[in-house]
Write a protein that binds this DNA or RNA. Structure first.
Lengths: 227, 227
DNA sequence: GGATGTGAAGTCGTTCACAGCT
DNA sequence: AGCTGTGAACGACTTCACATCC
């Protein structure tokens, strides 16, 4: 036996999950506007995807619609949130209170309600604590990184945000794994690996910008005929 | 004629471009360590991808290697930077100096050297200017959004970062398009469309977190057998 | 009638395997 | 002998088209 062993669930494309998040956002808007029912065609149009794609994405998880009618907005939204796990509260910690780390801390309210930053760590808390406090307008608590394990348990941390320099990323990831923090959002541009059962998502600004630069550099691209 | 019309260049998978950025990062590390030559197998290992993938990705753009030998690190790095356009300087503007906008402004040095923020706009500069200055430690210049067109020309802005509330995103995108700013990095969780010749990349923290939440929620996933 | 759910077809990206150079 | 470059096989995701059900 080699490669990937399928267990119980069939593999869901990552793109499907990303779109689910997008549907979720559109459905929230519709709900606010008081719209009760939506067809795959309409939802697709709002999300700029194919209607069959919407139906296929949902079909991975069950039958949520009514033939001849469509989907009940509220019902579908709840189901999608349940699928994504975005109906739960997720507790996060920032590790590395440098530029990006303190940006995330100071401005944590640009995160959605159910994602909360509940701790911050650095290798040298005294050095950064003043800087952060100043921005938050009250004494900020930045803990020494060697307390990750203890505090992760105490505060039930689900997700660690790595905002250290790239050279430290793997070490911090190891610490988080040891502490039983299963989810990692890695902002440090370095490849990080974790054992099975743990998850890393990279957010590399440099990659995104390089991507944009590439698209802007290739002047002759494609013409999309309008439908 | 309908659908997508191919012009001159063949389509390059977006994933290829993302990997190119990754190769670039690894090659920079190697260069620093003074390594002269690298094989596709070694580069692949460092980047956690397949060796054939490395060769295929590069083959889209030319022949950069020497059979029986490998690739010259410096040479390959330069070529990749040229392909990506990441050897040029890219000038950026932040539009919307709220939480995220001022975070990007205050902490712009977490961006790579060749990506520079050279302007900031808001619909109400007086309201935000104090807040930003305080963080930067000097009077910050936040311009009124109705000056985008004029200033974009003046300062040769290539890329606009949309950090407004989602409801304003499309309007701001229109403004940028009108001003001839061809690249947009959209942080506001709302679908934005632009004419052919312009490019939008989304960076939605909520989507990334939803994705992580999903992966953490599906406790039984896959076991990857080690090779 | 009308919109969902879904097998089948199509498209796109990845991996294999080896011919071709150095 | 060794490693690149690449056609062909494979696999994965998307779109089509229609049977199915409200």
């Amino acid at each position: 036996m080699k490669g990937v062993t399928k267990l119980k669930y069939k593999k869901i494309p990552e793109a499907t999950i990303r779109r689910l998040s997008r549907y979720s956002r559109c459905l929230e808007e519709m709900e606010e506007k008081g719209e009760k029912v939506v067809s795959s065609a309409l939802l697709a149009k709002k999300c700029v995807v194919n209607a069959a794609q919407v139906r296929k994405d949902l079909a991975y998880f069950g039958e949520f619609g009514i033939r001849g009618v469509g989907y009940y907005v509220e019902d579908l939204l709840n189901n999608i949130k349940k699928i994504l796990g975005s109906n739960k509260e997720w507790r996060m910690a920032v590790i590395g209170v440098g530029n990006l780390g303190s940006a995330l801390l100071s401005y944590k309210d640009f995160l959605k309600q159910n994602y909360k930053i509940v701790a911050a760590f650095d290798i040298d808390p005294p050095r950064v604590i003043g800087r952060v406090s100043e921005k938050l307008g009250k004494p900020a608590e930045v803990l020494h990184i060697n307390r990750v394990r203890e505090v992760a348990k105490e505060r039930k941390i689900d997700i660690g945000l790595i905002t250290t320099p790239p050279s430290e990323a793997q070490g911090v990831a190891n610490l988080l794994v040891e502490a039983g923090v299963r989810g990692i959002l890695n902002f440090a541009p370095a490849q990080v690996t974790v054992p099975v059962g743990f998850v890393v998502k990279d957010v590399f600004f440099s990659t995104i910008l390089d991507n944009l630069a590439y698209l802007l550099s290739t002047e002759t691209g494609y013409f999309i005929d309008k439908k």
